[in-house]
């Protein structure tokens, strides 16, 4: 097999894996817990699509919003916020022992056509509303 043929084959394999990645990711998300045993909660979020922008809403009940951080790394949005006070459950789910939650964290992959030059974060009640621009030509 020539080098070019090998390169084409590698590219095709990558494309195929790329097509299935969201499906695999979604399947995993359906069964994955929304917490970690070291005290991190995953918040609920939603992405709403508009012609010229996206709105990402993240619900952070019980959060201390003075500690909120919203960072973008590449196309990955990372939302972190500490809770106002630790939330303690004496017997939590499958682990059957006390667990203390201290903070929220969630990484959200943004769509490919986001325009990060337009970026705004606003708080509404327990929710954080993040508005991100959308490229009109992509």
């Amino acid at each position: 097999m020539s080098f070019d043929e090998l390169s084409r084959l590698r590219r095709r394999i990558r494309e195929l894996l790329g097509e299935y990645e969201p499906v695999l990711d979604e399947s995993w998300r359906e069964v994955a817990p929304m917490w970690t045993s070291d005290g991190v909660l995953e918040p609920l979020f939603s992405i709403y699509e508009y012609p010229d922008h996206y709105v990402i809403v993240v619900d952070l009940p019980g959060a201390d919003f003075s500690t909120l951080s919203v960072d973008v790394k590449g196309r990955r949005l990372v939302v972190r916020c500490r809770l106002k006070e630790e939330v303690v459950f004496s017997r939590w789910g499958t682990i059957q022992r006390e667990i203390r939650f201290r903070e929220y964290m969630r990484a959200i992959d943004l769509p490919q056509d986001v325009d990060l030059s337009k970026f705004n974060v606003e708080r509404k009640g327990t929710m954080v509303v993040i508005v991100v621009g959308r490229k009109l030509e992509f």
């Binding site: 609920l44 009940p61 019980g62």
Partner: peptide, 18 residues
Amino acid sequence: EAELIKIKTRELMKHTTQ
């Protein structure tokens, strides 16, 4: 207790949304 209820019901909400 609204905020605590929202924390406790996140997983049921996720599965319900699906």
